[in-house]
Computed example of a mutant assay.
Amino acid sequence: MNRLDLTADPVDLCAALVDVPSVSGDEVALADAVEAALRAQAPHLEVLRSGDAVLARTNLGRPSRVVLAGHLDTVPIADNVPSRRDGDLLYGCGTSDMKSGDAVFLHLAATIAEPRHDVTLVLYELEEVEAVRNGLGRLEREHRDWLAADLALLGEPTNSGVEAGCQGTLRVEITTHGRRAHSARSWLGRNAVHGAGAVLDRLNAYTARDVDIDGCVYREGLQAVKIAGGVAGNVVPDECVVTVNFRFAPDRDAAAAEKHVREVFDGFAVVLTDLSPGALPGLTAPAAREFIAATGATPSAKYGWTDVSRFAALGIPAVNYGPGDPNLAHTREEHVDTRQITEATAVLRRFLG
């Protein structure tokens, strides 16, 4: 079994985590190593293994509790394991998304035996795949009490800034219909691909909102992300499907977002294929205010969807905070500036106390 030293410098711990491959669906070796390390090196923590998720918590009776949450899995490896160092940069699959955040959380959970807040560590599997398989969703169903908290910190890469809440996302398919004919006698048919132009016209004319919530500005976007149509090189197509993605501010709930998209495309056949609600910033909660003060950062809106939405749906304020550049996530050249790992560890140690 791979052995992890949770008391080591979190930079070294991050490298050790990266060196244990954990592509989505194959997290067992890393989960085993994390569980064994927590049981051996953190006797002050209650530890739970659930599937390939590992959870640990203090039970000190503090008046508040903070969840430190991160996923153990990565996207497929791109010849970037094992890790390697180049000055202040640590390269490897998952260095940014999000084993650097996991390393910070693991180190602090293991080395702070008397935190100011009770702490729950939640490291879960299958985040990088379809939402129905997400380990955090399973934990919500099977171990809801382990997720209860006054604040949840998700260690997604934010360049050690605070990104509050997240956008919601939905996808719809809009189908236009025509009449099939031989392209040499096109007047006998009606081209469904041409008909999709009216859908694109509405998208081109659309004006997206900017929404300020708790000082965080969320920018919405409505975009065509795929067009599928055509039968053969000599056939007028009789069907075309335009896939549209709506990224919406968290002041809209899921139903309101769907209603808005259907209004934009009134008169067209619209089929909803995917929908995940956003998360409000929740920055007015006492634990969140204390955390913001500890970071000294000015929170910004999270562009994109993260698992903070799952905590928000449970009524738990949640923010994204972790080392690493999100723009490097999933790339062959993925890396993290190790100074951000050190900084995030110091900030969270001050906050947790």
Rank of each mutant, 00 (worst) to 15 (best):
D32P: 05
F291Q: 02
A346I: 02
A344W: 03
T243P: 15
V199D: 11
A36F: 12
V81W: 00
D145G: 10
L153G: 08
R349Q: 11
E125F: 06
A208D: 13
H194N: 15
N204A: 15
A196Q: 05
A31Q: 07
K302N: 12
A37E: 08
D150Q: 06
R190Y: 11
T7F: 15
P82T: 10
A109F: 08
G278R: 04
V211E: 02
V132Q: 13
L108G: 01
V244Q: 11
V119F: 10
N2Y: 14
V264Y: 07
L151R: 02
V347Q: 03
A318Q: 00
R332A: 13
H335P: 02
V75W: 00
D212V: 13
D251V: 07
A255P: 09
A56T: 07
Y91Q: 03
R138A: 14
L203C: 05
E239G: 12
C216Q: 08
P277Y: 05
N134L: 12
D210T: 12
D238H: 11
D212I: 11
L89I: 10
P63E: 09
A285H: 09
R209D: 13
A329C: 04
N159H: 13
L89F: 11
L6N: 07
E140L: 14
G195H: 06
S186G: 12
H330Q: 04
P326A: 08
T298K: 13
L38T: 10
R65L: 10
G315R: 00
R144T: 09
G229T: 08
L17Q: 11
S22G: 11
R252G: 05
A192C: 02
E130F: 13
A255F: 10
F265D: 04
D274G: 14
L4R: 09
G324K: 04
V75S: 00
L30R: 15
D79G: 04
T298R: 13
A15R: 09
D214A: 12
H260V: 06
L153P: 06
L328Y: 03
E333W: 05
R247A: 14
Y124S: 05
L272D: 14
E343K: 14
A228H: 15
E140T: 14
G304A: 04
Y321F: 14
L72T: 02
C216I: 08
A152W: 04
A287H: 06
A301S: 10
D145H: 14
V28C: 12
R332T: 06
V122L: 10
V81M: 02
V236Q: 07
Y124Q: 01
S300M: 14
V231W: 12
H143D: 06
T175Y: 08
N245E: 15
N234W: 01
A131G: 05
E35A: 14
G135N: 00
V193D: 08
D150Y: 04
T295V: 13
V18A: 07
E114G: 06
Q41S: 11
A8H: 09
A287Q: 10
E27R: 01
G233Y: 12
T207A: 13
L6D: 06
A224I: 03
T7G: 15
V81S: 03
G278D: 01
W146V: 00
S309D: 11
F311D: 00
V20K: 09
D337W: 05
L151Y: 01
P157C: 12
V129F: 03
G137I: 11
V66A: 08
P323Q: 04
C14Q: 07
S186W: 15
R310E: 03
A31M: 05
